[in-house]
Amino acid sequence: MEPAGPAANTIATLWWVMLAGATAIFVLVTVLLALGFRSKEAAGDEKRQERSWIIGLGLLFPSTVLLALLGYGLWVGERLLPRDGPDLVQVQAEGRRWEWIFGYGDLPAVRTLNVLHIPAGRPVDVAITTSDVIHSFWVPRLAGKLDAIPGHVNVLRIEASQPGTYEGRSAEYSGVGYDHHGFTVIAHDAAGWQNFLESGR
């Protein structure tokens, strides 16, 4: 799944950073375990060993790495939040078994079934809800996923860097048939988006 937008890129980087942190802790603990079986220093050094091995390496190192990862994760989470900005496009997504209905802030009268049209290179806020049970809106190449909750609207920021077609799907089990609960996102270039808006008016 190659990231195709800023949010997906950020999430992919977060995944690699988390993997690096987890690997560093795993390698260190494995080395400590191996060394624990290998050597035995003089009994008088026990206090010093306790300080350096258990407190220094066993507690401080993982805590420092986890604290750094927590801080980075929170910072990334803040960056992914939908905030006001220029060029923002508003759309709505309503899930129901087994289809997605999309609406457009610029075209209140237009609804599309299982196909979401967006402009490429512009941030798009998707207001997600459902008319029956919980679903989950997910376009893996463009952003993370967000639940569609009955009676509640969640907003997800997505963006496609380039024009193209991107597959989306529900990532929440919601009954027999949910595995076919997919949709398509078409990201238009500027002219294509203008055509879409004009054809809907």
Binding site: L70, L74, G77, E78, L81, N154, V155
Partner: peptide, 14 residues
């Protein structure tokens, strides 16, 4: 300190 830190410092409502 650790587990309640996020709720105190990050954006409150989505």
């Amino acid at each position: 300190i650790w587990t309640l830190f996020p709720v105190a410092v990050t954006s409150t409502c989505g």
